[in-house]
Design a protein around this nucleic acid. Structure first.
Lengths: 240, 240
DNA sequence: TTTGAAAATTGATACGGTCCAATTTTTTGA
DNA sequence: TCAAAAAATTGGACCGTATCAATTTTCAAA
């Protein structure tokens, strides 16, 4: 995990900050840290940059590096991993038992939109996979995914009733590492209401986007309609 | 703008990628770029890292750096600035005329929650600012903000009917550069429906969080209830 | 022809250094 | 005493180098 030098320092600084070892809210300067840790200044800078990008510290040239006071005061607010929390994480979050019910598993020709988004040809086909996701047997999300046959020709209803991402990673040694997501709110449709147990007044959160493989290949076009109480997306936003 | 070396290279590579100067989708290796641009490898790496973090290229150790084919094919999908698009941006986006109607401007004692979030003392007071935001005279968002008096003691109803962020930047030379936001969907309340012109079936998008000043001081606790058609949040998510 | 080890390629991490720019502290001189 | 100038502090940008690790290519042995 922390085999990298800058990550080791990162973790250590994080721990020291949390243990309030810098009561003046000011970290030692970079050159001092360099000699304290016995590493080069670039490694220190790298660690500090990550801390800064996570909002844990902020730097001021000519002045020093300081602990974000809010980080100490109200740590629970800062419980994201990187700068974004993914879908899987947010579903995994609270230790509930996840379940999947396959609603539809079929093959259809790629629409125009899929062709551009998934980088396909006219004649290509895609799997259409509609699944209902449960947490502790409670339906929370309707997921409609489109995956090019070319990428995973051996997909089956059985595979699809588990985690497709895990299958890819275990059996084909391909990892899904990135996605472009668009997040919005919408009134619930009749179908939403039936499947997710919503009243007509209750909305769904919609997250739609593309998942990419390690090598940049677009892998899945996904549309997720979540029970509104289960969608909470946290982000660290930089205004530029 | 592009006075920094690595930024110049960044822009240039971006341009070359867009002009399809790398038809094999493969960029020259880092050492070649180093000599081509006549800069150090660290600058090249820095530029490439930004490109990679924006999803424009992806790197593979031992293999090379490649253009994300989707970036060329479907450029419109990638029209975000950094890795996240902020509120202001999304409201500014489509060239409509923004308007603000002040609903409430008062001073109240800080609640327990504000004390922790905004790093305040027991006896501190905050401005409570409720504003209705319009685009082309169409109401799109109800914004409730809490700002510590200590930070901006001279705030007035007049100032508040414009952009508070711009006021801070122009008059007090303080910039708001970061925020932690939580995004969710909720059924609309009676008030939402009246102010935003929604039916009871139509929801609101809720973005709530904290805005920070340049120096890390938490500046505003904000709760934004958006007409659901106006909330669209785009994010590049890294799954780890 | 095929397989598998060796070599070359290529990005990743880390070092240590120079110079610069923003800020704070100290000193100087009216 | 105090304001302006000088010096010290501190983070930022960039350079060039060494070593490592993942991947691809090459080439020899079976």
């Amino acid at each position: 995990m922390a085999d990298l030098l800058y990550k080791t320092i990162l973790k250590d600084l994080e721990k020291r900050i949390f243990n309030n070892e810098f009561p003046a809210k000011k970290l030692p300067d970079e050159r001092t840290l360099t000699s304290q840790y016995g590493v080069s200044r670039s490694s220190i800078k790298r660690a500090l940059n990550v801390l800064a990008s996570e909002g844990i510290v902020f730097k001021k040239r000519g002045s020093g590096t300081f602990v974000n006071p809010l980080y100490l005061k109200n740590r629970s607010l800062f419980n994201y991993e990187g700068s974004n929390l993914g879908v899987t994480d947010s579903l995994r979050a609270d230790g509930k038992k996840p379940g999947i019910k396959v609603l539809d598993f079929s093959v259809i020709p790629a629409t125009k939109e899929m062709q551009t988004d998934l980088f396909l040809q006219e004649e290509d086909f895609v799997y259409q996979i509609r699944r209902l996701r449960l947490l502790d047997d409670q339906p929370v999300m309707i997921e409609t995914g489109y995956i090019p046959i070319r990428i995973a020709p051996e997909l089956s209803r059985t595979i699809v009733s588990g985690s497709i991402f895990n299958y890819l990673e275990d059996k084909k040694n391909q990892t899904v590492t990135k996605s472009f997501l668009s997040i919005e709110a919408q009134p619930s449709t009749k179908e939403d209401q039936e499947l997710l147990g919503l009243t007509p007044q209750e909305p769904v959160g919609v997250m739609s986007g593309i998942f990419f493989l390690d090598d940049g290949t677009p892998f899945e076009l996904s549309n997720m309609r979540l029970h509104y109480q289960y969608m909470k997306y946290n982000a660290l936003v930089e205004l530029k």
